[in-house]
Nucleic acid binder design. Structure first.
Lengths: 231, 231
DNA sequence: TTATAATGTAATCTC
DNA sequence: GAGATTACATTATT
C-alpha cells in the first residue's frame, strides 16, 4: 500500500475535494480498506428513515414538548431546564440515540459529486448505479432502508447547461416528457435531472414572485404611513 | 397548449423563432405561474459570484463547438447565440428581488449589527426598530457602500443561546417547525436563524464525523505499513 | 487564520 | 406537481 493511495483517500473521504476525476479503482480501494472499520458508535438502533420515519424523527421533540399543555399557555412548557435536562437528568438516557443518518454512512457512498457537463463527458461511476436510483420498487426499498446512503450526489450543471435550461424555461416552464427527453440528450443529462431542475426552477420563480408581491404590499403600507405622518 | 410543437423547442434553431411566436396563451400560462416575463434570475440569483460573463461565454462556445467536431458530429444547429438570445437582448428588466427585509431602507432601522442575546432580551428582528441597536458606526458603512448588499448581517449568537441550541441538538438534530418556533421565541431569534443554525450544525457534525473516520482509516493504513516493515 | 453564519440550489419526502 | 425540508458546496464575516 502506498502513500499515493493514502493521499487519495484523504481527498476522497476527508476533504471531499476530489470532485472530478476519481477513478473507480480509488473507490474500490476505499471500500476494501475502509468500510469494515468505519461503523462508528451508535449501533444503529435506528438507521434509517424507514423504520423510524417522520414521527420518530422528532421523537425527542415529542418528548420535550410532551409536557406542553394547551395550545399556547405561556412558555411554561418549554423550559430551558427541561432542555438542558437539569430537571430530569435521566430522561435523556431513555431516549434512543439522536437521529443522525450520516453516522451510518458508508464512506464509498459519500462525497461524490457528479459533474454534469456537456463538454466533458465525465459520467462518474455513480451513473452506473443510477439504475438503482430509477423509480423501481427496489429503489424505494433501498431508500427506505437508508435514504441517506441512496442520496444522489449533487449534480453540478455547467453554465452552458444552465443557460439552455433557462432559455427553455422562459418559453415553457412545464416541458413535457418529450422535451425533457430531448433536452437530456442534448445536454448529456438524465431526464430525471431535467425534471428536477424544472421543478426547482418553478419553485424558485414562485418564491421570488411571492416575495416581490410581499415587498410591494409592504411598501404600499409604509408609504401610506409616511404620507399620513406628513400631514 | 398552442399549435406550436413544443418539442421543437429543443432544437435550438427554433428557439429564438419560437420566442417570437409563442402564442399569448402560452405566455399567459407562464405568467400565471409566476412572472412578469422572464426571469428574475439573472440579477438576483447570486450576489457577487454570479456576474457570469465574458470568459464564461467564451468557454462555453469553445466547449460546445468542440463537441460538434468530436464524438457528436450531428446537431450542427446548436448555436450559443440563439440559445442565449444574444441576438435579442430583450426584456430582462424586471424583477423581483429576493425578499431581504434587512436590506430595506427604512431610515431609522437599517444597517445595524444584529446582536442576538437572550439575556438582554433583545429582539433581533431588524424590523423592530426600538429593540435593535447598532454596534458601531463602521457597521453602517459596510452595507451601504459595499459591494454586496443584501446579505444578512452575520448573527452573533450569545453563549447562552449557543448552549441551549447545543443542548437541543444533542437530543434532536432535526427539530420540527414547532420546536424551532419555540426556540425562536425563547431565544429571541427568528425561526429562520434557528433553522440555519441547525443545518450548519448538522454539517459540522458530519464533517467532524468524516474526519474521525478518516483518522481511523489512516491509522489502520499506517499500522499495516509499519507491521509490514517490521517483517 | 479558523470557525461558522448565510446563500443558492440539487435532491428528497409528503401530499 | 407543489411545498417544505435536507444536504451540500460556497461565500463571506469575525
Amino acid at each position: 500500500m502506498s502513500s499515493i493511495n493514502l493521499s487519495k483517500l484523504v481527498q476522497l473521504d476527508y476533504l471531499s475535494a476530489l470532485r472530478d476525476s476519481v477513478s473507480p479503482e480509488d473507490n474500490r480501494l476505499l471500500l476494501q480498506v475502509g468500510t469494515p472499520h468505519l461503523d462508528p458508535e451508535l449501533p444503529a438502533v435506528q438507521g434509517p428513515h424507514a423504520e423510524i420515519a417522520p414521527e420518530d424523527l422528532q421523537m425527542a421533540s415529542v418528548t420535550v414538548s410532551a409536557h406542553q399543555n394547551g395550545p399556547m399557555p405561556r412558555q411554561s412548557a418549554f423550559t430551558i431546564d427541561s432542555i438542558l435536562g437539569l430537571d430530569r437528568p435521566d430522561q435523556r438516557t431513555v431516549l434512543s440515540a439522536p437521529y443522525r443518518p450520516w453516522t451510518d454512512m458508508k464512506p464509498a457512498c459519500q462525497n461524490r459529486r457528479v459533474v454534469a457537463d456537456s463538454d466533458a463527458s465525465v459520467d462518474l461511476r455513480v451513473n452506473e448505479d443510477s439504475k438503482s436510483y430509477s423509480k423501481s420498487p427496489a429503489d424505494s426499498y433501498r431508500r427506505t432502508l437508508n435514504w441517506y446512503i441512496g442520496r444522489r450526489p449533487r449534480t453540478a450543471f455547467s453554465s452552458v447547461q444552465i443557460k439552455i435550461l433557462e432559455s427553455v424555461f422562459q418559453v415553457n416552464s412545464y416541458p413535457g416528457i418529450d422535451i425533457r427527453e430531448e433536452l437530456a440528450k442534448k445536454l448529456h443529462l438524465d431526464e430525471d435531472r431535467i425534471q428536477i431542475w424544472f421543478q426547482n426552477r418553478r419553485a424558485k420563480l414562485k418564491r421570488s414572485h411571492r416575495e416581490s408581491q410581499f415587498l410591494m404590499v409592504k411598501n404600499v403600507l409604509s408609504d401610506l404611513q409616511t404620507s399620513r405622518e406628513e400631514r
